[in-house]
Amino acid sequence: MAKYIVKRILAMVLTLFIIISISFFAIRLIPGDVLGEGANPELRAAMRARYHLDKPLIEQYVIFIKNFLSFDFGESINLYPRRPVFDVIAEKVPLTLVLNIFSLIITIPTGIACGIAAALKKNTLTDHAISTMVVFNVSVPSFVFASLLQYFLAYKLGWFPILLDLKAPFMSGAQLWSMVLPVLALSFGGIATITRYMRAELFEALSSEYMLLARAKGLTQLQATVRHALRNSFIPLCNVIVPMFMSVLSGSMVVETIFNIPGLGSLMTGSISTSDYYLTIAILFVYSLINLTSVLVVDLSYGIVDPRIRIGGGKTRE
C-alpha cells in the first residue's frame, strides 16, 4: 500500500509539472497584454521588462521554472497589483471553504435520504416526485437557482438578505443567515447526483440474494435493509462523495457574483481575462493539485471501504 501511494504521488508531481508547463505556454497565446489599449508606451515597456515578457519564450519558461522551484510564485499583475499570488488565493479560501462545507452538510444527507426514500418506494408517487426533482436539479444551472432564490426569497419576500453579509463578524448569526440562499443554490446539483446514485445502488441491493438470506434468518425488512442493503450501497457512493469533498475549494463563479461573495469562483476567469499570468498558473496549480489528490483519495478509499479490495488480492483459502 505504501509503495502504491508513493508511486501515485510521484505520478502526481509529474502531472502537475506538465500541467503548469502547458498552462505557461497556453495562457500566453491568449490575446491581451499586461496593460490595456492606449497605455503609455514607456510604462508598457517597463511592465513588460518587469515580467520578462520581452525575452524569448523559452527563456521566460526557464526563469519561471527556476522561480517555481524556489517557491517564488510571482505576483499578480493586474488583478491584485503587487500582491503575491498565493496570498490572494489564501485570502479567499476561508469563505469559499465555509460555504462549500455547509453545502456538503446539506447535500450529502439530503441526497442520501432522498435516494433511500426513492429506492424503498420504487415506482410509487414518492419515487416519481423525487426522480422529477433530480431531473430538474440536474438540468437547471445553479445560477438560475441562485437568481430565483435571490429574487423571490430575498428581494420580494425579504426573508433573507439579498447579499452575503460581509459586515457581520465571521460565522456570526447574521452572516450565517445570509449564507442560507447561496448554500442552497450550490447544493441543488449535488443533491440530485447523490440521490440518483443512492437510488440505483440501493434498489439493486434490495433485490439481491443476501437480502433474501437476511430476511430468511429472521431479520425484519427494516433490519435487513439497514444492516445489509444500505451498507452495501454506500460503498460505490465513495466515487461520488469523495470528489465532492475535494471540490470544497472550487468556487461557483456565478453564484458568488450574484450574492457578492468574494470567493475563489471569479478568480480564475478574472485572471485569464486580464492576462494575469502568474495568478492564473497559481490557480491552475491549486485546482490541479486538489483534483489529483481527490482522484488518489477516491482510489485509496475504495481500498479501505470495500474489504474485497482491501484484503482481496484474489486469494481464497479452503
Binding site: S147, A154, I162, L163, T257, I258, F259, N260, S266
Partner: peptide
C-alpha cells in the same frame, strides 16, 4: 461601497 458585478443584484438592492 459594495462591489457588485451582477447587475440584477444591484438593481434589487
Amino acid at each position: 461601497d459594495q462591489f457588485l458585478s451582477s447587475n440584477t443584484t444591484r438593481s434589487e438592492l
